[in-house]
Amino acid sequence: MNIDSIYNGIVLDHITAGKSMQIYQDLSLDKLDCSVAIIKNVKSRKRGRKDIIKIDQEYSVNLDVLGYIDPEITVSIIKDGKTIEKKKVELPEQLVNILKCKNPRCITTTEQGIDHIFRLADPATRTYRCIYCEEDRKIK
């Protein structure tokens, strides 16, 4: 299967197989009016299978969202047909308005219009805590 190379845009590579649709939705890529290619189950030497997303325009990607969904992803910025920058994403220190606290006693359940903020408590177990009530959330 052939997918055209992009000239100016972004390639999200090494996505864990099966996670590309979640990334498509969480980054709201459906709202872009350029070509977006989702390539699933590509053979990978390192990981057996992987997904790839190609976005055919300049786009400021939210690395925190990517790091939260899948810290294995690499982001390549393409300009004039050449890779000008490659970034590895990491588990972000802080997640803003990505998770919502499930603790019914937390102030975020009643206060409107505030940022829902989680801080990384333990990278080994991928555990975040709500900054307000400290309820934990383990990221699968």
């Binding site: 603790n103 006693r105 937390c106 102030i107 975020t108 206060e111 709500c130 307000y132 400290e134």
Partner: peptide
Amino acid sequence: RHPKEGAPLL
């Protein structure tokens, strides 16, 4: 004092 956790931080 507030019944909701995190209200003073907010």
